[in-house]
């Protein structure tokens, strides 16, 4: 592309504009341009990412709407029934207390997805703003801010959570807070290092010379440039958060019976997997499928957010 236009300059011939540019141009006049809209255009061409997105949406709907449609209740026990394998009555089988596993997987999914997405979102928001600010300001401010991050890193997670529980009592929101508090640290470090390498670039200087404010430079010019790695981190954070939640629940600090999350269900299933394998297989399948989808989606999103990766 660039060679092509170079020769055109020399020959003083107009370059035939790529067709795609015209298409977008026409829409742009009405809607205005945005990084995310462009990214969506590019994402739509990535089949793997789009199918992942659809599967993910399907899983989410399954978990959110499913329990209302099911004739069973996730907490009603049927001790006479006990654990039975998948059947026409109970598609996923039942657990040792005779509860319908399908409803439990759905309701567990609600909590797992909620924790995974909300905690990740919170972690990203804090991490990106914190890291970008530290990296951009540099110097002593940067040092102070990053030492604080180190401090939090050094804090043992379990003790931190137990302290929170003691202080505020047990609640789902506390899990978000606790996990969010830990997970933003990595994001902050990645964003900071990205911003430090970017801020020396001339386009930042150019933005400065055009009279842009620091806030504007950080938000409009620097953060979009580091979104690629951030998205990758996010896709890795979601499973990490779900696993953390399972870990907390296992310790008795997270979700408590009779409520369930995928982590809790997998844990239960793993204890019974030799006798009642379906108790492990179904929650593990949904967990894995979700993580796969998020990974592919994240990968596609990272490519879509980088204008240079457009293969047209």
């Amino acid at each position: 592309m660039s060679d092509h236009s170079e020769t055109a300059v020399l020959a003083d011939e107009p370059v035939p504009p790529p067709i795609e540019a015209n298409e977008i141009a026409a829409e742009e006049l009405e809607e205005g341009s945005s990084l995310w809209r462009d990214a969506w255009h590019r994402l739509k061409r990535n089949r793997l990412a789009v199918s992942s997105l659809f599967i993910f949406i399907f899983i989410a709907l399954f978990c959110v709407v499913g329990p209302w449609l099911s004739p069973y209740d996730s907490q009603t026990q049927d001790l006479f029934l006990g654990a039975v394998g998948p059947s026409a009555d109970h598609w996923f089988g039942t657990d040792t207390l005779g509860r319908d596993l399908m409803v439990r997987v759905m309701e567990g999914g609600r909590i797992s997805l909620l924790v995974g997405l909300v905690a990740t979102l919170v972690a990203l928001l804090i991490g990106v703003m914190y890291g970008a600010t530290a990296g951009y300001l540099g110097g002593k401010v940067d040092s102070a801010m990053m030492r604080f991050v180190d401090l939090l890193y050094a804090l043992p997670f379990t003790i931190f959570v137990i302290l929170l529980m003691v202080a505020f009592g047990r609640s789902l929101w506390l899990i978000f807070v606790a996990i969010g508090c830990i997970e933003w640290l990595t994001t902050a470090r990645i964003v900071r290092s990205g911003v430090i390498s970017l801020k020396k670039q001339e386009f930042v200087e150019a933005a400065n010379s055009l009279g842009f404010s620091h806030m504007r430079i950080i938000v409009r010019h620097l953060i979009p440039n580091v979104l690629g790695p951030v998205i990758v981190v996010a896709t890795l954070t979601v499973p990490a958060v779900m696993l953390l939640e399972a870990f907390l629940s296992f310790l008795g600090l997270g979700i408590q019976p009779p409520n369930a999350s995928w982590g809790v269900l997998i844990n239960e299933g793993q204890q019974n997997m030799e006798i009642f394998p379906w108790m492990l297989i179904f929650p593990a399948f949904f967990f894995a499928l979700t993580l796969f989808c998020l990974n592919f989606l994240g990968d596609g999103l990272r490519d879509a957010l980088d204008p240079k990766s457009a293969k047209d």
């Binding site: 462009d38 001339e202 200087e205 400065n208 010379s209 055009l210 440039n225 957010l305 240079k308």
Partner: peptide
């Protein structure tokens, strides 16, 4: 900031890096 880019502008040495790659 009101003077920069408004009454005084600047062109930089390397055009390859002085435009933000992520923005149109």
């Amino acid at each position: 900031r009101k003077v920069r880019g408004n009454r005084i502008s600047m062109i930089f040495q390397d055009p390859m890096t002085s435009l933000n790659p992520y923005l149109r």
